[in-house]
């Protein structure tokens, strides 16, 4: 089945960071009106480095897999490093560059524009969360 590659399904079945218990310094809800996805992203940040991350909520397989990949990459990543990673995903989904190995499980989504928002929701939620974090600090 085209969009649901094995690698994506593996993240959907066993998501990294799903309902993980962390000492969060920030938390934000994200909603995708088109699809009805609702997720909550949590992070623990210290000295501009993301120490821990977690997500929860009701979402489609693509959103869930994308959030899992995000949490997999976040540990000990600087905020600047996160923004670089996020922009790489965006560029790949927009067809502007090849998918790196990290994002390969999401590569099939580029062919389904209507589902892009599902993949982007965790990242957009974290963008807003980090913005709020920066404004507070």
């Amino acid at each position: 089945m085209g969009i649901y590659q094995q690698a994506l399904l593996a993240h959907h079945q066993k998501p990294i960071g799903f309902e993980r218990d962390i000492q969060a310094t920030g938390k934000l809800d994200g909603h995708n009106a088109a699809c009805g996805d609702d997720i909550t992203v949590q992070i623990k940040v210290a000295d501009s480095v993301i120490i821990q991350s977690a997500f929860s909520g009701e979402s489609c397989a693509i959103c869930r897999a994308s959030a899992s990949i995000m949490c997999q990459q976040l540990e000990q990543l600087s905020i600047a490093g996160y923004h670089l990673l996020s922009s790489q995903l965006m560029a790949s989904l927009n067809g502007e560059q090849d998918f790196s190995e990290t994002f390969l499980p999401l590569s099939s989504i580029a062919n389904y524009p209507i589902r892009l928002q599902c993949a982007l929701l965790p990242w957009q939620t974290l963008d807003k969360l980090l913005l709020a974090h920066q404004e507070l600090n």
Partner: peptide, 14 residues
Amino acid sequence: GVHSHDVASCLADD
């Protein structure tokens, strides 16, 4: 246990 959009996308593949 399966999101509606995932169901529709899978069916579209068929």
